[in-house]
């Protein structure tokens, strides 16, 4: 009997979810691109694809293009300007939105 009890304990627990679990998904508070007042624009001639902006971007909205340069996902970019400040080649410019 005792042996069985420990076996049951070590089995994968059957979890009963009383509330819906949240799962990672895009836009958990909507399209955050609408928060932006300044828009980061990549100057492609200056971009070397060093990925420094990609590393620092707090939002994960910077991606690599096929040609090794960066592109910005404007749907979710909040326009904080961290990328423009860390770029060692001044290849990202902040321009007013609208």
């Amino acid at each position: 009997m005792e042996e069985r009890a420990t076996k049951v304990l070590l089995e994968e627990p059957q979890t009963l979810f009383l509330a819906p679990l949240s799962r990672p998904a895009l836009g958990s508070v909507g399209k955050t691109g609408t928060w932006r007042t300044m828009r980061p624009v990549v100057i492609l001639d200056k971009c070397t694809g060093c990925k420094i902006c990609w590393l620092y971007c707090p939002e994960n909205t910077i991606f690599m293009r096929d040609d090794g340069k960066v592109r910005i996902d404007y749907e979710y970019c909040k326009g904080c300007g961290v990328c423009a400040n860390v770029c060692p080649f001044d290849a990202i410019e902040m321009v007013p939105e609208g």
Binding site: S28, P58, N60, F63, C80
Partner: peptide, 28 residues
């Protein structure tokens, strides 16, 4: 090596953090 890290979602865009949040940077 930063260049070898894959291009993927390290944090999900469209979260409720303020612009320029250091916590989302840290979580990435």
């Amino acid at each position: 090596n930063i260049r070898k890290l894959p291009d993927r979602y390290y944090i999900m865009p469209g979260n409720a953090a303020c612009p320029g949040c250091p916590e989302t940077m840290g979580l990435r």
